[in-house]
Design a protein around this nucleic acid. Structure first.
Length: 722
DNA sequence: CTTGACGCTGTTTTT
DNA sequence: CAGCGTCAAG
């Protein structure tokens, strides 16, 4: 590393230390570079020592990449780099009981499905299971809203006027009580509770202000109000804070991200802030940037800026309109094959992006049929699988016996003959005695149950307790093995031929525990559980493998690919608009489009379909093309005609003559007569004759200077010049 | 208490 | 097309 590697603006961002710094860093302008160079600079020039630096990111992937780069450059691993949520969890592990002494450091982090399970209980308790309006998803979104706005239960209660609002307030209250008695927190609490901690204890705040003397924040445009408040508190005293972000890439408004944090709030809170704009783009061609900009510039709420490419103009953006989602997928696969044929591009140069996860299905099927290797990043996560969650619930309960959600999940798995009725009995007993549900299992002998049930409950209770006592002495690696054995979980799957996938997933879980335990010697089981709770599928994504990457645009943020396909450019899908849309939602969709296009280094394909199957093929809906395609600068677009021809082949089966659609051939000719082409050796030429198609296409070319050559497209590295 | 069949409903994006 | 809840039968 060398400060000479940086351009003037980057250098200024790195060297400005004694002021708050706000860096507007457009896509591909070296945002991560500025952050890592700055940390390197702070450490190397002994301005701060590594453990005095706190760097916050939004994804684990960004955090570990930054860690790695710091490790390489200054060879130290004690810089505090982490996601907001993981740093929050770390603070809570130390101090959570200060907030309420019924909490302890073994608390569980609830994910969405745990939250839903808890809300289900609340709905039953409050007798609102009949209400369609107060459904679980709605309630969850309300709780999210409250917590993103740092509203306490009391505040919500006092503002509730209508019957419905009062019910929602009741839900919030009961939900919070149950979290407490379960010794559990939700995702929002990982930010909200440390914030509360610092607000309540000035001594603690001071301690952390002295501990973390320099703060850096990545993707600052994605911060929500509690996150902004948290860094304002931590950095407010010493004012040593650098935030880096791009308002054009703010795409998490629905999660509470407040774009005003980067546009105005930072400058209001830190009036001495130095503002720096990075507008030199090192990633994309000028046409790609122009195309992306021509759409996002229609937003009203944005800071005025325009990226300049350091690369040349590049190729035009291709627009392919197809008749159906199947054809869209075909067009993508054909285009990939063609690029591979002509340019010898490896598979991992391509990314296929979409607005919703549901779109991946048809593309995936087509990729399989065409024999193209692919990898879906994100979507349903490994740790969300039922069997994996079951085992995790065992581990969770062992760590935190107060966790009723975990307990209920496994009390009858594998089957112990304990149903709803028995649980109610234990529940009553627990509230009568004022003990946890788990503790109430101890008294199973005093309860009207069949002897067999009593035996199995007693066994269950004693075993969980035993593992709980072993937590400190047994390594996670061994613990999971003994546990799987003791509760007969592994055999349950192993002996059932229909459950082999699940058995394999359990094996994979075991190896992920091993991996964790080797990477973090001496770590507790609860640390593993925390890592999993904050894990996303992106974290395991390795783009060095030769696969085409399929993911949502949200997941793709921060990544780059030579060639990017953006599918589903249809009004209603992208932009995805609902009936009750607030107008600023369209602006966020535009930013999402901007993010999608600026992932590309060399080539962009925009695709849409007139008809698309929804609800797994049951319904077919028609769409008109996306408004974004009207907004985009026509000069950077090249419309590619595309049509498919289905070949019907007659087959005989059992005397009956039927036909099959054997293959979809796409008329997507690679070269036409008269095309201008570029050859590595022979230079520029014109195509005179053509023969064969697809794999075997041959061309006769006359190159400048009169040289005539006959070439096989597959081997000649011909490039078409637009 | 468990199992299986059936009908309903919902599709944004994720730490 | 799921994933859920409900219901009836074993």
């Amino acid at each position: 590393m060398n400060l000479g590697d940086l351009n003037a603006q980057q250098l200024k961002a790195v060297k400005t230390v004694k002021h708050p710094v706000l860096v507007f860093a457009g896509a591909g302008t070296g945002k991560t570079r500025v952050l890592t160079y700055k940390i390197w600079h702070l450490i190397k020039d002994k301005i701060y020592s590594p453990n005095e630096i706190l760097a916050l990111t939004f994804t684990n992937k960004a955090a570990s990449e930054m860690k790695e780069r710091i490790q390489e450059s200054v060879n130290c691993d004690n810089v505090n780099v982490g996601t907001f949520h993981s740093i929050g969890a770390r603070i809570l592990r130390k101090h959570i009981s200060y907030l309420d002494d019924r909490y302890n450091s073994s608390f569980t982090i609830y994910d969405v499905s745990d939250q839903k399970a808890l809300l289900k209980e609340v709905r039953e308790e409050l007798n609102i299971t009949e209400s369609k309006e107060l459904n679980i998803n709605f309630l969850r979104s309300q709780l999210d809203k409250f917590k993103n706005a740092s509203m306490s239960v009391e505040e919500v209660e006092s503002k509730a006027n209508s019957f419905e609002d009062k019910k929602i307030a009741e839900v919030y209250k009961r939900y919070s009580e149950l979290l407490l008695s379960n010794n559990a927190v939700d995702f929002n609490d990982l930010i909200g509770m440390p914030l509360k901690l610092f607000k309540h204890s000035n001594a603690l705040l001071k301690k952390y202000q002295q501990l973390w003397k320099y703060i850096l924040v990545d993707e600052f445009q994605d911060t929500n109000s509690p996150q902004f408040e948290l860094i304002s508190l931590l950095g407010g005293k010493h004012q040593n804070i650098t935030v880096v972000g791009d308002d054009d890439q703010s795409i998490y408004g629905w999660r509470g991200a407040n774009i005003d944090n980067i546009l105005t709030n930072f400058k209001d809170t830190f009036p001495k802030a130095v503002e720096i704009k990075l507008e030199k783009n090192y990633r994309s061609t000028q046409r790609i940037l122009d195309g992306a900009w021509s759409v996002v510039k229609n937003n009203i709420n944005r800071a005025e800026k325009k990226l300049v490419a350091t690369k040349d103009l590049g190729e035009k953006i291709s627009l392919i309109s197809t008749g159906s989602d199947e054809d869209e997928a075909n067009a993508i696969c054909d285009s990939i094959k063609k690029e591979i044929k002509i340019n010898k591009t490896p598979f991992n140069d391509f990314a296929i992006l979409y607005r919703t996860n549901a779109q991946s299905r048809i593309i995936e099927q087509t990729m399989i049929r065409e024999g193209l290797p692919y990898r879906i990043v994100g979507g349903t996560k490994f740790y969300d699988r039922k069997e994996v969650k079951d085992v995790l619930a065992y581990l969770t309960l062992v760590c935190n016996p107060n966790d009723n959600i975990a307990l209920k999940r496994i009390i009858n798995f594998p089957v112990r003959g304990i149903g709803e009725k028995s649980i109610t009995i234990f529940n009553d007993l627990a509230s009568e005695k004022g003990i946890s549900l788990f503790e109430s299992l101890k008294s199973c002998r005093d309860i009207k149950l069949r002897g067999k049930q009593q035996d199995s409950i007693e066994q269950f209770y004693l075993s969980i307790n035993k593992f709980h006592d072993l937590l400190e002495t047994l390594d996670c690696k061994e613990l999971i093995r003994v546990l799987l054995e003791e509760f007969n979980i592994e055999n349950y799957y192993k002996n059932n031929p229909a459950e082999q996938d699940r058995y394999n997933n359990i094996q994979e879980l075991k190896s992920s525990v091993d991996h964790f335990s080797e990477k973090n010697p001496g770590a507790y089981l609860r640390d593993f559980l925390q890592e999993i709770a904050l894990y996303t599928d992106l974290d395991g994504y390795d783009n060095s493998k030769s696969h085409v990457a399929l993911m949502t645009i949200h997941t793709a943020k921060g990544l780059e690919f030579p060639t990017v396909f953006v599918s589903g450019l249809e009004q209603g899908l992208f932009p995805l608009i609902r009936d009750d849309d607030p107008s600023d939602q369209l602006e966020e969709e535009r930013r999402l489009f901007y993010v999608a296009v600026t992932r590309a280094m060399e080539r962009v394909y925009l695709l849409n379909a007139q008809q698309r199957r929804t609800f797994g093929g049951l319904k077919r809906s028609s769409f008109r093309q996306s408004d974004f395609l009207n907004e985009i600068d026509k000069d950077v677009i090249k419309v590619k005609p595309y049509k498919t021809v289905r070949i019907k082949r007659f087959v005989r089966s059992g005397g009956k003559k039927t036909f099959q659609i054997s293959r979809t051939v796409t008329q997507f000719d690679d070269f036409k007569k008269g095309d201008q082409v570029q050859h590595n050796l022979f230079g520029v030429g014109t195509i005179l004759v053509l023969s064969g198609t697809g794999e075997n296409q041959k061309v006769g070319v006359e190159f400048d200077g009169g040289l005539r050559k006959k070439l096989i497209v597959k081997y000649a590295r011909l490039k078409k010049i637009d």
